[in-house]
């Protein structure tokens, strides 16, 4: 049985990857340069970690594993 915590941890990599790709695409095709938009990656990682923590308290098997 997969818990929502496991799911969030599993999608973390792909979502960060998509974010980075999108930021570079924005850099190439819009006026938003990567040097301006990079903090978005930190925000996404932070959100994913928060979501992981929020779900872990219900049925998290691994304690303390943030990133």
């Amino acid at each position: 049985m997969t818990t929502s915590n496991e799911l969030i941890r599993a999608v973390r990599g792909p979502i960060i990857l998509i974010t980075i790709g999108t930021l570079f695409a924005l850099d190439h095709f819009t006026r938003w340069g990567f040097q301006q938009t990079w903090p978005v990656i930190l925000i996404v990682i932070g959100l994913l970690t928060l979501a992981g923590r929020a779900t872990r308290t219900t049925s998290g098997p691994t304690p303390g594993g943030a990133i």
Binding site: A10, P14, I18, G21, F24, A25
Partner: peptide, 19 residues
């Protein structure tokens, strides 16, 4: 950059299918 996006999307789909 679209290679990165496609790669991420593929992995996302894989994870969701497995889930």
């Amino acid at each position: 950059p679209f290679i990165l996006i496609a790669w991420g999307v593929l992995r996302l789909i894989e994870v969701l299918v497995e889930a």
